[in-house]
Nucleic acid binder design. Structure first.
Lengths: 161, 161
DNA sequence: GTATCTGCAAACCCTTTGCAATAAG
DNA sequence: CTTATTGCAAAGGGTTTGCAGATAC
């Protein structure tokens, strides 16, 4: 998989992590929300370990360190999104996925049906297509998504699990 | 919305409908499944009224004519998909949508966040992008999706409901 | 101190499933 | 007649929410 990468393997640098946490704290304070241990742990875990994840993965990683409830995670995620650090994506597997918004270029997803890994790619054609369509249709875009599913290069010979 | 259309407003012609129902019956028989009133009603309703729908819409339309259970709908949809008449799409609103597969060209979706209507468009750039990426990454595509959400031309002035 | 946040468990929504009654062939 | 299919209601996943106790400020 030449140009693509798995984002979980692409964590923020220590400096970037500090900045991002700063952005989050600032956002919380600006809204009169509190900077709690749980919110900090969630934000740090996302920024440190995960470029791309779902709630269960995050829950497992967090709980391996200290106790936390899923409710707190579900309540924190919208705040991280609001603060601009995170974006939500629905993949075709039927539940929410999230990914870091900071320090990332615009990209789309390749999802392997066999090993379930998510790869990323960027395709400038897509932005052009989106602009063209919106202009033609008088539509005001608030977001878009392109996803391809199939078999990654490693899984094309193997049987489906 | 010049080039786009709401597919629910684009029903099959009587001849096409007959053909499609034939395809479905044939599929059922070939598998040893039974041609029941419910399956026929569901298939006909989809082909006659809906180009694009979710289970609730279909349920409402069907039940306005005769009693049916959602379970039967949920059980019939995979058969319609298997028979090639229907495809399933996940839109970013978090539940399954379905659309007629027959007599339709390849297209993507514009989803209005205000009125919730789905518009369609086709963009040849997307197929090119998909091919390019798959070639580059050694990925074998089994399907893909492009969706844009935002405000349709009618809803840009109005308040969000 | 006081209002917000947490964890828990119950509620929710959409979808699937087990079962006894019904209908297709 | 025999077996698949139906409707119901209960169970499933993922997500949200109400509430009493904990905690940020």
């Amino acid at each position: 998989m030449a140009a693509t990468k798995i984002l979980a393997e692409n964590p923020r640098s220590p400096e970037e992590l500090g900045e991002d946490l700063g952005v989050f704290r600032k956002y919380l304070k600006s809204k009169g929300f509190r900077v709690t241990r749980e919110r900090e742990a969630i934000a740090e875990c996302i920024l440190r370990n995960h470029g791309h994840f779902d709630v269960d993965e995050l829950f497992m990683t967090l709980r391996s360190k200290k106790p936390i409830s899923k409710a707190s995670i579900y309540r924190a995620l919208p705040l991280l999104i609001e603060s601009g650090l995170l974006v939500a994506v629905y993949l075709e597997d039927g539940h929410m996925h999230y990914e870091r918004a900071y320090g990332r270029e615009r990209h789309s997803h390749l999802r392997c049906l066999n090993c379930r890994r998510i790869f990323e790619f960027s395709a400038p054609e897509l932005e052009q297509a989106e602009k063209r369509i919106c202009r033609q249709e008088g539509f005001k875009s608030k977001g878009s998504k392109f996803e391809i599913w199939g078999l990654c290069s490693n899984c094309q010979g193997e049987p489906k699990k």
